[in-house]
């Protein structure tokens, strides 16, 4: 596929420096909810200046350029190995150019590889489909918010959370309480009900590919998503945990089947610096559409 490496480099640059419009609009609207002269309003004002400045300077919005997560949907016969090679090269160039921080550390030696390449980095999730287009999406997810993610196994005695949607609601709100301001709130939650421990977390991150205004086709989950945001915003944690009106900007919930013996709720917390972007390539490798 022609031009794949430069196209992926541009995807990384854009993802790191520019928030998608749906996220910016949600932040702008949330900022108006905070009290005049409050610490929360101060934080939201700086957040908005930062969004504008990063775009203008074409520089990383946040210095923690995060885990590099590619989600690729491609036709049968698509050369995944060639994609992986191009993605790795693009990531190394993006690091040298300063679009990405040197952010990949050998877990045994503690040595930073210096180019963001190593086992597990970048992470690429491939899915096949019957169309002809290649849909490439990228999420950059920083460590602060990744660290406050949580996985619960229901029933949870401490939280009086049973194996039903009310139990799911209780553990999600507990995760918000535990996170406080540490995940750079106001945040966005991606949640998966069910699955095994590994597929649950992956699916929770895939929820973060949905736009802010996307409505869940499953009515029970759509209602829960709405309720979580309203309830979390009554907790008073606020931007950065300074206290205030906006604790969550959004919540997206998916479900996978589970074993009769298991009932996991996997929660990925995304910070306000919600870096996701994507494009569609036609069969000659040309970008025909930006997705967000």
């Amino acid at each position: 596929m022609r031009n794949l490496k430069p196209n992926l480099l541009e995807l990384v640059r854009r993802t790191s420096a520019e928030l998608p419009d749906d996220v910016v609009n949600t932040i702008v609207s949330a900022a108006t909810q905070e009290q005049e002269g409050s610490n929360a309003q101060y934080a939201m004002n700086i957040i908005q200046s930062n969004i504008d400045m990063a775009k203008l300077k074409s520089a990383p919005l946040c210095q923690d350029t995060g885990s590099i997560l590619f989600f690729v949907r491609a036709p049968r016969g698509f050369d995944q190995l060639a994609f992986e090679k191009a993605a790795r090269e693009a990531v190394a160039v993006a690091t040298a150019k300063g679009y990405l921080r040197q952010n990949s550390v050998d877990s045994l030696t503690g040595k930073n590889t210096g180019n963001n390449l190593g086992p597990g980095s970048p992470a690429i999730h491939f899915h096949q489909h019957r169309g002809t287009r290649v849909d490439v999406r990228l999420i950059l997810k920083g460590g602060g918010c990744e660290n406050v993610g949580a996985q619960y196994s229901l029933p949870d005695v401490r939280l009086n959370a049973n194996r039903d949607l009310d139990g799911v609601r209780k553990v999600i709100l507990d995760a918000v309480i535990q996170a406080q301001g540490k995940g750079c709130g106001p945040g966005i939650l991606g949640v998966c009900v069910g699955g095994d421990r590994a597929t649950g977390y992956v699916h929770s991150k895939e929820q973060l590919l949905r736009t802010m205004d996307d409505v869940n086709p499953e009515p029970a989950l759509a209602a829960l998503e709405k309720d979580i945001v309203v309830s979390a915003n009554k907790l008073g944690i606020g931007p950065m945990g300074f206290g205030g009106a906006t604790t969550l900007l959004g919540c997206k919930i998916g479900a996978l089947n589970r074993l009769p013996a298991s009932y996991f709720v996997s929660i990925s917390y995304m910070c306000w610096a919600y870096r996701r972007q994507g494009f569609v390539l036609n069969d000659s490798g040309k970008i025909v559409e930006w997705l967000y």
Binding site: N50, A54, P60, C62, M240
Partner: peptide, 11 residues
């Protein structure tokens, strides 16, 4: 407490 994520304003 600095503003988390505000890498450009702070840079």
């Amino acid at each position: 407490h600095a503003i988390g994520g505000a890498a450009q304003v702070l840079a």
